[in-house]
Design a protein around this nucleic acid. Structure first.
Length: 998
DNA sequence: GCAAGGTC
């Protein structure tokens, strides 16, 4: 060929797998495996230096791909690269109503442990023209393949993609795959995507609901419990509960049978009655009487034939877990952990397999030979070879990827449980490739008065595999010699009474078998699900062997059962039906989107039913936990009511919702699209609860809902608590009291008021005036704004009384001349530059900007024509008219406390203590309450658009920060307002949050 | 803090 194509073969699952493929390819193409391996180690070391996992190696070699001799690069992944996660704004447990998780946006994120693998793929694919996926040929493997494709296509969108399909990891299989490359199967991958999404949504929604609610309903017993739900763990719990209930509800019945023995010398042959047993004593007695009357048994038949006890099938994961649990008393979770370790040490093959057929290419002789030196089973291994073995038994299952579990090499140095597990795997392997045990069975049937009785004898002829497989017994049974036609008198012919007995509690082996049968979990995850329900204390172990439901598990399952769902969450049915749909997607017979929608709706409907009847779960748990449930109002239980959208986000169009503060105390208003949109409002008062009502605000429109708020200390003194109000901006008093900036809740061009004054700092005698949380947030939100999108704002500054002016929004002349910036400071706290717009619709217009272009500060300079020319000091000219409650001239004072009112002037009784009255009034409000004409307090009434609406709104709302932007639509609020009083000093004009006396 | 799946 005239050119070579650089391919990238990716094998994904395990190190040994890629080494193996590498080995086969290398041997075939170069016939020089040793050299290839050496090169691999060299690259591996290099990767380690770069911080990559040693398993994330790069292999380079030549191979022929679609008829072209190509340079190949090979690397591996390790399971899924990506994982679904909720959008960050839904990750906090109290960020939303759990039911929203069925529709909440989700995204794919690269797991931390996979980041280096992803980097390797991104790096290597750059030099490649094609990509061959070598992941396991099962559903998950196909999905992992698409994750790799996604990562690689992000770097190289036009990369050619192929899929290697193989039935086992052997040389011929690998070459067959390489010579018949296919395309990855999107249907199969889609099915897994839906499985992943549904598991995430249902798991998170139900887990949050259960945990958040039950912790509160049973604070004494469940306060610190994580009460999880999962589509696998709950059916697993269901199996345990079902068995327990069948025992609990079991009613024993008495039965009777006829017992017949025949003793010759010292040997007693036991005969079993053909009818086994009867539940009617009289009938049984009647038959016995007839038999006794005859009292002679005649031999009807004697059948003797060889009988085998089959050697075990090649070992798959489920069998291994069951047997190790049963025979070695090591639980499945530990067994898997140990097997994993043995695998990574190279002692055994991959322990997660569904295959019970040895691949033809697997060199069984070699594997047996490895064991011949062992002191315990070495002789047996040799015997296999001597007797023409190995002769493997053949099962019916194959996962198309991994062989049955088998030992790779002899491991004499192991101890403890590792030794026991390894020994089991070796003995199972040797047994599976030897011979069935051979015996000789004799079945004798005798007749007494037309009643048949049977005896069975067994002689063990060859134990064969049983010699090594010490976990099974096959006992012979000796009986007397009988010939057809013989007669004898029974030694015993009696009535025996017995009772039916309940089933036993489930063992782990039985539980795994049930999970396997019903398709709950995979071979790799059965043990984990069992472990989960133990960790959650849903179940416990009786005598370290039998699973018994705990009170929590029992109460939960009974609660769900009592809700009357069509299909209980604790049954495997929902999952099984989902599986059916997934199969149809894989086969291309169902649209994945339709299945997803249907399944999500199905689970969502179940969720809503559970919510409606949640008291059933409370009651069941109360009964099982023997605890009194704390009555919980549905509204107060979960954050669903506070997490409903209050209004549309004015910045991005998302939803504004209330969230809990991180410290757990109080709430704040946030855009649901955080972190993309950082719009937020931080009420200064502690809000213990918010319920977003269905009722919308008549003033703000249908998208803005009224809210019922419960305050820790009601800032609306004298008002109800909880209280219903609108925070959509129609009532400035509400926003002001809660310290929510208007711009947080309303688009700036909708209202006359704006908080953009908060976007900059005004320098005065002190370094800067207060910048509260709103200011900071506002700065962040508007950080990237461009001049074009910013509304007009009017800077306010007054060196002599800047606080009052700022609070009063009294505009002060800031001309577009060189020294104007003296009083305008950017977010870096440096004097801002005054500049002129060069282009666009605002050409010629002046604005302020960070002089050093460090921060994003931006502010239009006021037009001289529209800017009032003089400053009005609000307080100084009014003080002489203010009288206190003693009818004395009040004294003007300045807030010295270092809070947001620092520097603000107010009036107080001029008398010294004691004798001083409790009169209090802000100086600026005295001024404000003076009769004003339509020109407002600005006096100019020129082109600035300062209207009486604005002044009135300030009179009502006392806006102290939202002081500008009066060129936009005026704030309208003609509703009569009640004057609020301070909760501390009782005076009007300020709230407790700003009380100078606090 | 949540699932189940992959995996070293």
């Amino acid at each position: 060929m005239g050119f070579s194509i650089l391919w990238n073969i990716c094998r994904f699952s395990s190190r040994s797998f890629s080494s193996k493929i590498m080995k086969y390819l290398n041997v075939a193409e170069k016939n020089d495996a040793a050299k290839g391996i050496s090169a691999i180690l060299s690259r591996g070391a290099s990767n380690r230096r770069e911080g990559f996992s040693q398993y994330n190696k790069i292999y380079e070699f030549e191979a022929t791909v679609i008829g072209v001799k190509s340079q190949m690069v090979m690397t591996s992944v390790s399971g899924h690269l990506l994982n679904y996660a909720f959008h960050p704004s839904f990750r906090n447990w109290t960020s939303c109503n759990p039911v929203e998780l069925f529709d909440a946006p989700i995204e794919q994120v690269c797991m931390e442990e996979s980041k280096n693998i992803k980097k390797t793929l991104e790096r290597e694919i750059r030099s490649c023209d094609g990509l061959i996926i070598w992941t396991d040929c099962d559903r998950e493997g196909e999905n992992i393949g698409f994750e790799i494709i996604e990562v690689c296509k992000d770097v190289k969108p036009n990369i050619r993609i192929f899929r290697a399909k193989f039935s086992e990891i052997t040389g011929p299989s690998i070459f067959r795959a390489l010579n018949s490359l296919e395309q990855p199967n999107k249907n199969v991958s889609d099915a897994v995507d839906i499985r992943k999404e549904l598991d995430l949504r249902t798991g998170a929604a139900f887990t949050r609901l259960q945990t958040l609610r039950l912790q509160k309903v049973f604070p004494g017993k469940l306060a610190d419990k994580l009460i999880s739900y999962g589509s696998c763990q709950f059916p697993t719990l269901g199996f345990v509960v079902d068995r327990y209930l069948s025992i609990e509800n079991f009613i024993p019945e008495t039965f009777w049978k006829i017992k017949m023995n025949h003793k010759v010398k010292d040997l007693t042959t036991e005969f079993l009655w053909g009818r086994d047993r009867l539940f009617d004593k009289n009938s049984c007695e009647a038959i016995l009487d007839i038999c006794k009357e005859s009292n002679v048994a005649k031999v009807d038949s004697v059948d003797s034939k060889p009988k085998s006890k089959w050697r075990p099938l090649p070992l798959d994961t489920v069998e291994m877990e069951k047997n190790i649990s049963r025979k070695l008393k090591i639980n499945a979770k530990n067994a898997m952990k140990i097997a994993e370790k043995l695998y990574t040490q190279g002692y055994i093959s991959y322990p997660r397999t569904e295959t019970n057929i040895y691949p033809k290419e697997l060199n069984l002789v070699n594997l047996v030979e490895h064991q011949t030196n062992d002191t315990n089973w070495g002789p047996f291994a040799q015997r296999i070879l001597n007797e023409g073995g190995p002769t493997p038994r053949v099962g019916k299952k194959s996962d198309q990827a991994h062989p049955p579990i088998h030992p790779i090499k002899h491991a004499p140095g192991l101890t403890g449980q590792e030794k026991a597990v390894y020994e089991y795997i070796v003995r199972h392997f040797l047994a599976s490739v030897h011979k069935d045990a051979q015996g000789y069975e004799t079945v004798v049937i005798v007749d007494i008065a037309d009643e048949k009785f049977t005896a069975k004898g067994l002689i063990i002829l060859e134990k064969n595999y049983l010699d090594v497989y010490i976990y099974e017994k096959w006992l012979g049974k000796e009986i007397n010699n009988y010939e057809v036609g013989d007669t004898f008198t029974p030694s015993t012919l009696d009535l025996a009474e017995g009772n039916t007995s309940p089933p036993k509690l489930l063992t782990e082996a039985e539980l795994i078998a049930l999970m396997d049968k019903h398709g709950i979990g995979t071979d790799a995850t059965h043990a984990e699900h069992i472990d989960t329900i133990k960790t959650r204390e849903y179940v416990g172990l009786h005598e370290n062997t039998y699973f018994v439901p705990g009170t929590l598990g029992m109460g939960l399952v009974e609660g769900y059962n009592n809700i009357g769902l069509q299909v209980s969450l604790a049954k495997p049915v929902l999952r099984a039906e989902f599986e059916k749909d997934l199969k149809l997607i894989c086969e291309g017979l169902k649209d994945p989107e339709i299945v997803k929608r249907e399944q999500i709706e199905r689970y969502k409907a179940v969720f809503q039913t559970v919510m409606d009847k949640i008291l059933e779960i409370d009651n069941s748990l109360a009964n099982r936990l023997d605890d009194r449930p704390v009555p919980i109002q549905n509204e107060a239980l979960t954050p669903q009511d506070s997490s409903r959208p209050v209004m549309k986000c004015p910045k991005c169009g998302g939803n504004m919702i209330f969230k809990n503060r991180k410290n757990g105390v109080g709430k704040y208003l946030s855009c649901s699209r955080y972190p993309e949109c950082k719009n937020s409002g931080w009420p200064s008062t502690i809000i213990d609860g918010v319920e977003v009502l269905d009722e919308h605000c008549q003033n703000c429109g249908p998208a803005t809902k009224k809210v019922k708020m419960k305050f820790r200390q009601n800032p609306f003194v004298g008002g109800p608590n909880p209280t219903i109000l609108c925070i959509g901006g129609c009532d400035m008093n509400v926003l002001e009291t809660l310290e929510i900036a208007l711009s947080t809740v309303k688009r700036s061009n909708e209202e006359v008021t704006s908080t953009h004054a908060n976007n900059y700092r005004i320098h005065e005698n002190r370094p800067s005036i207060n910048v509260n949380r709103n200011v900071q947030n506002s700065q962040r939100i508007n950080g990237n704004r461009t001049p074009r999108t910013l509304p007009n704002v009017m800077p306010v500054t007054n060196r002599n009384n800047s606080m009052n002016n700022f609070r009063n929004a009294n505009p002060v002349n800031v001309h577009g001349s060189g020294n104007s910036a003296d009083n305008i400071f950017c977010q870096c706290d440096n004097p801002a530059d005054l500049r002129t717009t060069a282009n666009g619709p605002n050409k010629g217009r002046k604005y302020y900007k960070c002089a050093n272009s460090v921060c994003n500060f931006f502010l239009w300079a006021p037009n001289s024509s529209s800017t009032p020319s003089t400053s009005t000091s609000s307080s100084n000219n009014a003080n002489t008219t203010v009288q206190c409650k003693c009818n004395q001239p009040a004294k003007e004072l300045t807030v010295m406390k270092n809070n947001h009112n620092h520097g603000r002037k107010f009036y107080s009784c001029s008398k010294p203590q004691p004798g001083k009255c409790d009169f209090f009034k802000w100086a600026d409000e005295v001024n404000e309450n003076q009769p004003t004409d339509d020109n407002g307090p600005w006096g100019g009434g020129g082109g600035g658009g300062v209207s009486n609406n604005w002044s009135r709104s300030r009179e009502i709302g006392k806006s102290k920060k939202n002081n500008t932007n009066h060129r936009t639509k005026p704030y309208q609020n003609n509703k009569p307002k009640v004057k609020r009083k301070c909760g501390i000093c009782g005076e009007e004009g300020h709230t407790r949050t700003r009380c100078p006396n606090s």
